[in-house]
Simulated scan of single mutants.
Amino acid sequence: MRTVIQRVRRAEVRVDGAVVGAVDSGLCVLVGVTHGDGRAQIEKTARKIAQLRILRSSDGGDDERRSAEEAGAAVLLVSQFTLYADVRKGRRPGWSHAAPGDVAEPIVEEVARELRDVYGLHVETGRFGAMMDVELVNDGPFTILVEA
């Protein structure tokens, strides 16, 4: 599983012009699922999202960082199969490393459930398989790539 974790001032996802998920200050996380991902990757990914100490302290400084779990920060979780694009050859991306939708969707849903149930976070999501418009204001900018 691959995730791009971004510290945001705000983020939202629209499908056909309607907002389907939005957060104020917190994290926007793009999630890609590959073949063989399962329970271990779900748990590791949720733990990283919840416990990475990347949020600013309550006074806005960068000296003491807090995790989403400590801060009670919201998370916008968006499925993103393109994180597994293969562009090593030619000019067209290959998608063979991305898990098919019927495999990936329940895994992404399980990451969201784990963040809610285990870490107590407010989680908003995009709509799996839909053409989504993702809009965000990156805070920093601060963006981290995590492999699980």
Rank of each mutant, 00 (worst) to 15 (best):
E110C: 07
D37Y: 02
M132L: 06
G61E: 06
V146D: 15
A104I: 05
I5M: 11
L52P: 07
A130C: 08
G61Y: 04
D24A: 15
H97G: 14
E43W: 04
S96C: 09
R9H: 11
E70W: 05
G21F: 01
V146S: 14
G17K: 06
V33G: 02
G32D: 04
A130I: 06
R66P: 02
V78F: 06
G90Y: 07
M131S: 09
V29A: 02
V134F: 07
H35R: 12
V29E: 04
D117T: 11
L115E: 11
V87H: 02
T125Q: 10
T143W: 05
F128Y: 14
T143F: 05
H122K: 13
A98R: 11
L77N: 02
A22M: 00
L27E: 13
H122V: 15
V103M: 02
E43G: 13
G61T: 13
D139L: 12
D117H: 09
V123W: 06
E109Y: 08
R127F: 03
Q80I: 01
P100S: 09
Q41A: 10
A130K: 01
L76R: 02
R65I: 04
H35K: 10
P141I: 13
E70P: 08
R7H: 08
F142S: 15
R39N: 12
C28N: 13
I49P: 00
Q6I: 12
